[in-house]
């Protein structure tokens, strides 16, 4: 019991500085590489320092979004049913089953010649493609075996041209945003699916997918689907795991504190000029970091006040900082003092 109490952080401890150093120091030793050996059955993900920068900068999308989907027990061991789910996940676009295509802007028609082998490999028929395209607005589709003619009813050539591009990028089957999906098997013979691209909300709705066992590395998407607390947990875990992978084990409190700081406003803020550091209350603290002149001019124009409560501004003016023993203030009870003096 004594031991547990000694691990508690004492009041006034500069936890932020300790966290920054604990993450920053190993960061200098981390190898600056963004790729892992790319094999056939593994997907590329960002690792090491680039991944940490990606998290801390709060990028809207990770460079290589990925998902890890676990299936319900009833289907997880049957390869055929797992494959059927995989079909529903991987997105197949019109362009990936095309053999050739031609566009006629004058008559506003597009002729698509589908590749039979590619169609067979994705297990889709030309009819499926045609019926999918028919659902689009202001289009007329006629199908003849593997030739599909699409007529667009639009006023001008420009919108017809954009419609042609949209048709080639239209998805036939699968979940939007999932560019690749792989079926993998663990030691126990249980199948699971890893994907390149992330779309939690849509994958969750597929039958046979265990909706509580989805992992995604897209922090903003996790925030949209599960909420800010889930995003916070993910930030802390990703920072911790990325560092552990490189062989640097830090105490979990440090990434945890970073994650708390990034999410305390209810949405994800980056650490740095446009986020936490740029929104500090103190003018001096902001000016000491980056864009000094900008902050001083703005403060001058708007008559900002600096309460000198933080660390940076107190160092700047040469005052004692409010950290550790510097936090303690002495106060004298004047009445008591008078009593003491009277006695003397």
């Amino acid at each position: 019991m004594e031991e547990k109490g000694s691990l508690k952080v004492s009041p006034g401890e500069a936890v932020g500085v300790v966290a920054a150093q604990s993450i920053g120091e190993p960061g200098t030793q981390m190898i600056l590489r963004s790729f892992h050996a790319a094999g056939i059955s593994s997907l590329i993900t960002t690792k090491g320092l680039p991944r940490i920068i990606e998290i801390v900068d709060a990028r809207k999308r990770p460079k290589f979004p990925m998902m890890h989907v676990v299936l319900e027990d009833s289907v997880a061991k049957k390869y055929e049913s797992v494959r059927a789910i995989w079909r529903k996940i991987e997105e197949v676009k019109v362009s990936s089953v095309l053999r050739s295509f031609s566009e006629d802007l004058r008559s506003q028609t597009m002729t698509l010649e589908l590749d039979r082998e590619k169609l067979a490999s994705y297990e889709i028929t030309a009819h499926q493609v045609a019926s999918k395209l028919e659902k689009r607005e202001a289009t007329e589709v006629s199908q003849d075996d593997n030739i599909i003619r699409v007529k667009i009813k639009s006023k001008d050539m420009k919108s017809a041209r954009t419609a042609f591009v949209h048709i080639r990028n239209a998805s036939i089957i699968g979940v939007a945003g999932i560019t690749k999906a792989l079926v993998q098997q663990d030691e126990a013979g249980v199948f699971f699916i890893t994907t390149a691209g992330s779309n939690i909300a849509d994958v969750m709705m597929i039958d046979g997918v265990d909706k509580w066992h989805i992992y995604s590395n897209d922090i903003f998407e996790v925030m949209r689907v599960y909420g800010i607390e889930a995003a916070r947990t993910l930030i802390a875990h990703e920072l911790y795991e990325t560092m552990s992978d490189e062989g640097f084990t830090v105490s979990f409190r440090h990434p945890s504190l970073v994650a708390d700081t990034m999410t305390y406003t209810g949405s994800i803020k980056s650490i740095g000029r446009h986020g936490v550091a740029g929104e500090k209350e103190s003018v001096f603290a902001r000016a000491a970091y980056e864009e000094t002149v900008k902050h001083f001019t703005n403060a001058g124009v708007f008559g900002e006040k600096d309460m000198l409560k933080g660390v940076a501004e107190n160092i700047l003016i040469g005052k004692q900082i409010g950290v550790g023993t510097g936090m303690v203030r002495l106060a004298i009870k004047k009445d008591e003092l008078k009593k003491v003096k009277a006695k003397e």
Binding site: H68, W212, H213, I214, Y215, E229, A230, T233, H237, E241
Partner: peptide, 11 residues
Amino acid sequence: VCLLPYAYELI
């Protein structure tokens, strides 16, 4: 696999 925080662990 066990290291990945799944949805139920995240929330």
